[in-house]
Amino acid sequence: MMDGLSRRQGSPAARAIKRFRRHRLAVAGLVVILLLTLLALAAPLLEAWRGVDAEAVNLLARNASPSLAHPLGTDELGRDVLARLLRGGQVSLAVGLAAALVAAVIGTAIGLVSGYLGGRFDAVIMRLTDGVVALPLLPLLIVLAAADPAKLGLAPDLLPPEAQGVLRIVLIIALVGWTTVARLVRAATLSLKTRDFVRAAIAAGAGPGRVMRRHILPNAASPIIVATTLSVGNVILLESALSFLGLGIQPPVPSWGNMLTGALDQVWTAPSLAVWPGLMIFITVLAFNFLGDGLQDALDPRSEDH
């Protein structure tokens, strides 16, 4: 029994968890992310419990000060700021996580195939990656976000307008955000495909698809997880910037970015309307960055437990 316990404590997963727990900022970031996610998911329940509606307009209560009924006050249309912050968190967190995951899938597929096949294919793919990296990111996103899907031949009525806006931003950001993961996966693949266990699988008759899926991809998971976690914060910033410019999530759907846009005209008379969404963006991005740093240390096999 003691031998089994010792083996479990000495497993790579146990050591990674131990290293992660020592990274206090990463643990704090994880706690903050989980708390924000739970609050955002529970937004409808909290609104029903408090008897408020995030979309209810009350012009007689415009820019009201914090009170028991409205702990963070109301905005320029008399809507409850706390309820809209939580609703905006649903959208901003969903866009950040979804775009980061889609970009990770695209980058993983490109990097895996490019690194394994090598040769001219690898050279072409890497030059394409360099070209995407060299493009000015924010102006490119602004141009893509300003494009009308209907004029591009895409059916606009397949999804509700709210879902269309979220999906469009996710796809736009993912289409230019895959390069970091692609480079990391390619580098890991180039290293792993020369290992003995990969050569043994090839000698046993395993095809390229099976080798990449069963032998290379699981061993390249660490950089993928770290890069995806770190990219969530960047995606939230990009979504907020696009929404602030009026090209992201469109009202009445709240996001932290378009809440900042709505507060722009009230910044001198009601500065808290800009402070709260800005603070949420700052805290969330910081938490994801801390979490990514902690995962990087925890998943690095060269880290020492001392």
Rank of each mutant, 00 (worst) to 15 (best):
E162L: 05
G177Q: 00
R168Y: 11
A174F: 01
P161F: 08
D148E: 14
G165P: 05
A155N: 14
L171S: 04
A163S: 12
V143C: 07
P149R: 10
L141K: 05
P139R: 10
L154M: 13
P149G: 10
D157L: 10
L167C: 07
A147P: 03
L137T: 09
I173S: 00
A155I: 05
A145N: 06
P139Q: 10
A163P: 03
D148N: 15
P139T: 09
L152K: 09
A155W: 08
L175V: 08
I172D: 00
P149M: 09
L175T: 13
I173Q: 04
G177P: 01
I172E: 02
P139M: 10
L159R: 06
L175H: 01
I172F: 00
A150E: 14
A145R: 02
I169M: 11
L171A: 13
P139L: 10
E162T: 13
P156F: 05
V166P: 04
P161M: 08
A150W: 03
I169E: 02
L159Q: 08
L159V: 13
L138R: 04
R168C: 03
V143A: 15
A155L: 09
P160Q: 06
L141V: 09
P139Y: 11
P161S: 11
L167H: 05
A150V: 12
Q164Y: 12
P139I: 10
L167Y: 02
D148M: 01
A145K: 03
G177T: 04
K151S: 13
G177E: 01
L138H: 04
L175I: 06
L159I: 08
I142V: 15
L159P: 06
A163N: 10
R168E: 01
A146G: 11
L154N: 08
L140P: 01
G165C: 07
V143H: 02
L137K: 02
D148L: 02
R168H: 12
L140S: 15
I172M: 04
L140G: 14
V166L: 14
V143P: 00
L159G: 05
Q164I: 07
V170P: 02
G153N: 07
E162Q: 15
I169N: 04
L158Q: 12
E162W: 13
A150R: 15
V176W: 03
G165H: 05
P160R: 11
D157N: 15
P139W: 12
D157M: 06
P156V: 14
L158Y: 08
L167P: 01
